[in-house]
């Protein structure tokens, strides 16, 4: 090997090392996944083979001399040698062609291989690996899990910190705003499927409604207005929804989370989409734990 080849290989090595360093710094385990490993192998192959083969021929410009029989023809002064094929090239052509036949007929037979089959296997393997592992996860684990799901699935609407992006979605640092409560009092609500069924509009009005809304939005601390009695029949004296008969107005409890994630919800702020079938039961539990942690 001469200087040019060594320089080219060194360049290839730097590129590969830089790639691996960046990926590893992001907590990605290259050897932990078949696809990662093949990709990195492919990247190495591109860099190394190109460096090696191109410099091999460029070196011949320094070391070799042109030779061979010239063909009779000549175009605008350009001649052509009758040289044989470079053997490495010819064998590689033959080899890749034979390999392609093997690949298409035996390796991944065109009549039998199915990528959906492969997907189903991937999901099975995944479930085996993770689902049993976290079936009985403790609260701390659920909290961490919830956070990572939240950042991917919910943060685009509710914001990274759960503050609802200044009124563009539910603010998880509290339960509800006055505006939200008033809107429900005025318009009623019938979308979540609580045992109590629907909430009719106009359960309170005027100053009563204002007082109730202030009280509920304040986290039901302080003095309870007398008019809250209108609500207590369904939501309970403490506003906690009487064990899931109606929504808990004080906390994001399990029932509320389950129903909201399943059905979605349209309110004064906007519409929250349903996450039905998009989260597993464990993930849903984790979500609840995490959302609850935000309001405390």
């Amino acid at each position: 090997m001469n200087a040019l080849t060594i320089k080219a290989l060194a360049f290839a090595a730097i590129l590969i090392i830089a790639t691996i360093a960046v990926v590893t710094s992001l907590d990605i385990d290259i050897m932990g996944d078949f696809v990662y490993a093949v990709t990195m192998g492919g990247a190495i192959a591109i860099a190394v083979i190109t460096a090696f083969v191109t410099t091999k021929y460029i070196n011949q410009m320094k070391t070799d001399t042109p030779s061979g029989d010239l063909a009779d023809e000549n175009w605008d002064g350009i001649g052509e040698y009758e040289n044989e094929l470079p053997s490495g090239w010819a064998y590689a052509f033959l080899a890749t062609f034979l390999w392609s036949m093997w690949y298409g007929f035996l390796g991944y037979p065109t009549n039998a291989y199915s990528q959906i089959g492969e997907y189903n296997e991937e999901v099975l393997a995944y479930n085996e690996k993770f689902e049993s592992l976290h079936k009985n996860a403790d609260a701390a684990t659920l909290l961490e899990m919830g956070e990572s799901i939240y950042l991917v699935q919910c943060a685009p609407c509710h914001g990274n910190t759960g503050d609802g992006l200044s009124g563009k979605a539910q603010d998880f640092t509290g339960r509800m705003t006055k505006e939200q409560v008033l809107y429900v009092i005025n318009n009623g609500s019938n979308q979540l499927g609580y045992p109590m069924g629907m909430m009719p509009p106009g359960m309170a009005a005027g100053k009563d409604a204002e007082d109730i809304a202030t009280y509920v939005a304040g986290g039901m601390q302080g003095e309870k207005p007398a008019s809250f009695a209108a609500c207590a029949s369904c939501h309970g004296e403490d506003g906690k929804g009487m064990n899931g008969m109606a929504p808990n107005l004080a906390q994001y409890d399990d029932t509320l989370m389950t129903l909201v994630l399943e059905k979605g919800k349209k309110g004064v702020i906007g519409t929250m989409p349903s996450f039905k079938d998009r989260l597993t039961p464990v993930q849903q539990k984790a979500m609840t734990v995490y959302i609850q942690s935000l309001s405390n």
Partner: peptide, 11 residues
């Protein structure tokens, strides 16, 4: 369409 809504797109 499954996980974003009208008001979100508007914003």
């Amino acid at each position: 369409g499954n996980y974003r809504t009208t008001d979100w797109h508007e914003n």
